[in-house]
Simulated assay, not measured.
Amino acid sequence: METKKFTATEIDQASALIRQGELIAFPTETVYGLGANALDEQAVKQVYAVKGRPSDNPLIVHVSDFEMVKQYVTEFPEHTKKLVDTFWPGPLTLIFKVKPDTFSTTVTGGLKTVAFRMPNNKATLDLIEIANIPLVGPSANTSGKPSPTTPQHVYHDLQGKIAGILEDGPTQIGVESTVLDLTAADGVPVILRPGAITKQQLEQVVGKVRVDQHLVSEKEAPKAPGMKYKHYSPDVPVWIIDGDQQVFEKAINWAKIKNKRIGLFADEQVVSMFSNEVDEVFSFGEHSVEEATRLLFAGLRSLDEKNIDVIFAQAFPETGLGIAYMNRLKKAANQNILKINSIFE
C-alpha cells in the first residue's frame, strides 16, 4: 500500500478515504492521531492491527463539535457545559457513559463509557466535518513507542500500512491530552491521564478534581489510553536524571565504566556542559518545561535511532505541565529515576 501525504487543500480526498474504511493519520495540537471511522468496526480493528495495540485499550473518539457527541450520549454530568465551553477545542478528553450498542467493543474496550475529544487543529476539524463521522484517533505510531509529533514520525512508523497522512507540521504541545472521567459515582471529575490542561486549571472551572495515581499493569484493562505502567518507550533504555550537575556526572561516569554509548536529552546548559562526555545529544533549548514537553517524544525518537546503549533524560518538578511531562517520561523509563543518593552498580 502506498501511503499518500495530503495537504490542507486535499482534505476532501482524505475524508473520502476515511468513509471508505481506510486509515488516515491526522494532526492535532498534541500528537498525530491514527484516524478511522469510529462507527466502522472493521476499520477500527485495522487500527489495532497496524499499531500492534492491545484490544483491551479503549480508543478516544474525535469529534468536530459538541453536537456530534450528543448523538451518542444521553445524559451529561453537571460540569460538562463549563468544561466544553472553556477547553474545547483543545487538549482535554472527556469520558461519558454512552448509549448501548452505539460503539463496538473495539472502540470501548468492553466498557460502557467512551472518551471524546475535539482537537484544536483546523485541518483535522475540517476532516471530521467533511467526513461527517467521528474518528478514533490513537497516536499514529507503533504501540508503546514514543508518540509521533511530526508527519515524518508517522511515515517512519506506518509507511505502507495506512492510506495517508494529513500533514500540518510539528505539533505544538507534544504530549497527549488530559483525560478527565466524568462518570464517577460521587460526581467528582477524575484525571486518568495528565496533559496540558492541569488539575489547577480544571478546578478553577469545576471545583474539586481527583487524580487517579494508579499505574495499570500489563495484565489490567485501562479505562483510558496511556495508563499502562510502561509506555511511550524507545528501544534503548531510558533513565531519568533528577538532580543537579553532580547527578549527571555520576550517571555518565557509571555508563562509561559499563562501556555504554550515551544519549542525552536535556536543556542547552546541561548539553553544553556534557556534550564532550556523551555520544549523542538532543537539546530542547532553554530550561523550559513547555519546550521539554513539546520535544520529549521527538528527542526520544531521535536518540533511539542513534547507535547508543542508554538515554539519560532531564527531570522537571512535578507541578503544572511538569506533571504531564514526568508522567510520560517515567513510563518511557519504566519508572527508572536516578537521584543524588542513587547507587550506581
Rank of each mutant, 00 (worst) to 15 (best):
I323D: 07
T319I: 14
T124V: 10
K260Y: 12
H231F: 10
P222C: 02
D304N: 14
I197V: 15
I340G: 14
I60F: 02
G164A: 09
M227E: 03
V271P: 02
R261N: 11
F284A: 04
L215I: 12
I343D: 08
V271R: 01
N334Y: 12
G169S: 07
A36H: 01
Q46C: 11
K250D: 10
E41C: 12
S272V: 08
A266N: 05
N276E: 14
G33Y: 07
P54F: 02
A49F: 08
K258V: 03
I262E: 01
A255Q: 04
T183K: 10
I24W: 01
M68K: 02
A8F: 11
Q213M: 13
R19D: 09
F76G: 04
G174Y: 00
V211W: 01
K4G: 06
D12T: 13
E167M: 08
V44K: 03
P194L: 12
K51T: 01
Q246V: 13
N276H: 13
E268Q: 15
S233L: 08
H231L: 08
D12A: 14
R193P: 04
G52E: 05
R301G: 06
N253S: 15
E176T: 08
M118A: 10
H214Q: 12
I162G: 05
Q201N: 09
Y325E: 02
K339G: 08
Q152Y: 13
E129G: 05
E41D: 12
Q204F: 01
Q245T: 14
S55I: 14
G160F: 10
V190M: 14
I343Q: 12
H62A: 07
Q46K: 15
N307I: 07
I343N: 13
K258E: 12
P119Y: 00
W254N: 11
T28G: 09
E41H: 10
P89Y: 00
G299R: 09
F87E: 06
D244Y: 11
M227C: 03
S104Y: 09
K250M: 09
E29I: 10
L202H: 03
K339P: 08
K330C: 09
I165M: 03
P222N: 04
V216P: 03
S147M: 09
D12E: 15
K331E: 11
F76S: 07
E249K: 13
E345S: 13
I337E: 10
F274Y: 11
A315K: 10
R210V: 10
V247T: 13
S177R: 02
V188L: 04
T183R: 07
A266D: 05
G110V: 09
T106M: 14
V84D: 03
I343K: 14
D242N: 15
Q269V: 12
G35A: 07
T150W: 09
L127H: 00
G90K: 00
T3G: 04
A115T: 05
E41M: 08
Q335E: 13
I162V: 06
A313P: 04
I95K: 00
Y48R: 05
N253P: 03
P89G: 07
